[in-house]
């Protein structure tokens, strides 16, 4: 930036970048407080050095290690959850393709028995990925689909069972209860499985994503986030607030609608994109 001093204008510019990136006013204030503190302690005078400090600290906070992807190597059950339309089914399809490419035996569970043509949609993804799918008809009990799928996964020695679920808003009590039930069935029927529970968040979502993560965490032991739709102009900054407040890491990002458009989360790229906007306006 063209700032010659670390002054109010400089901090205002930082505030603008963070808020426009959807980090949120609370997390932004906390980040700025912390930054000001460090600037004081370390006697930093140069604005670019100050910005560097900020970028580094967000990057370090968001970094994930390889251990986050252990489920890919274990006999695992992956439960994919989230609110409506965020990209759960698509992400399950992409993940299936990725694991299949690694030579894994993958089974999909079509546990969204509610939304119109959800089963057909996942079936198309199963075909694209070349993996098996255990389905339920519209209106069937999703927990029983998961039960069937778990039995199939054990019987056929699948490496990974990926369960797609219906979109549900986190403030709907009965739908959240249904998720709890699905979770219990996996625990009971397949206690040896390595468990991974990924909440899918739409990268264009604002502050509500924090509440989504918080509420889903109440009913499931969330192990990571898939942050989708980062191929647009949204930055998905709310993930920073979620990481600080709930300690849930982003593990994958969605960058398109094709099977190869799922990537492991890269903290460097994420932070660069977050701070990129200043250069184009």
């Amino acid at each position: 930036s063209g700032y010659s001093a670390i002054d109010d204008d400089f901090y205002e510019e930082i505030e603008e970048i963070l808020i426009m990136g959807d980090i949120g006013i609370n997390a932004t204030n906390a980040i700025l407080e912390d930054l000001k503190q460090k600037v004081k302690e370390q006697h930093i005078k140069d604005p670019s050095q100050c910005k560097e400090l900020l970028i580094n600290s967000i990057r370090e906070q968001m970094r994930v290690g390889e251990v986050a992807y252990r489920f890919e190597q274990e006999k695992s059950v992956v439960l994919v959850i989230g609110v409506n339309g965020v990209g759960k089914t698509t992400s399950v399809g992409k993940l299936a393709g990725k694991l299949k490419d690694q030579g894994k035996k993958v089974i999909l569970a079509a546990a969204d028995t509610f939304r119109a043509a959800a089963g057909e949609q996942l079936t198309e993804w199963a075909n694209r990925a070349g993996v098996e799918i255990i389905g339920g008809s519209e209106g069937a009990d999703p927990a029983s689909v998961v039960y069937d799928a778990v039995c199939a996964a054990k019987a056929r020695h699948a490496d990974v069972l990926l369960c797609d679920t219906a979109g549900r808003l986190h403030n709907k009590k009965n739908l959240m209860e249904e998720l709890r039930k699905i979770n219990r069935i996996i625990d009971r029927e397949y206690p040896d499985a390595f468990r991974e529970t990924l909440v899918v968040l739409d990268g264009t979502t604002g502050q509500n994503a924090l509440e989504q993560a918080r509420q889903f965490k109440e009913v499931c032991d969330i192990t990571g986030i898939i942050l989708t739709k980062l191929d647009g102009t949204a930055k998905g900054g709310i993930a920073v607030a979620i990481q600080s407040e709930l300690g849930i890491p982003v593990k994958y990002i969605g960058v398109g609608e094709s099977i190869e458009d799922l990537q492991k989360f890269d903290a460097d790229e994420f932070v660069n994109a977050l701070f990129h906007q200043e250069s184009n306006d």
Partner: peptide, 12 residues
């Protein structure tokens, strides 16, 4: 428009 959309809503 999804009512949960964040800062990107204006761009869209």
């Amino acid at each position: 428009v999804d009512a949960m959309t964040g800062q990107d809503a204006v761009n869209v």
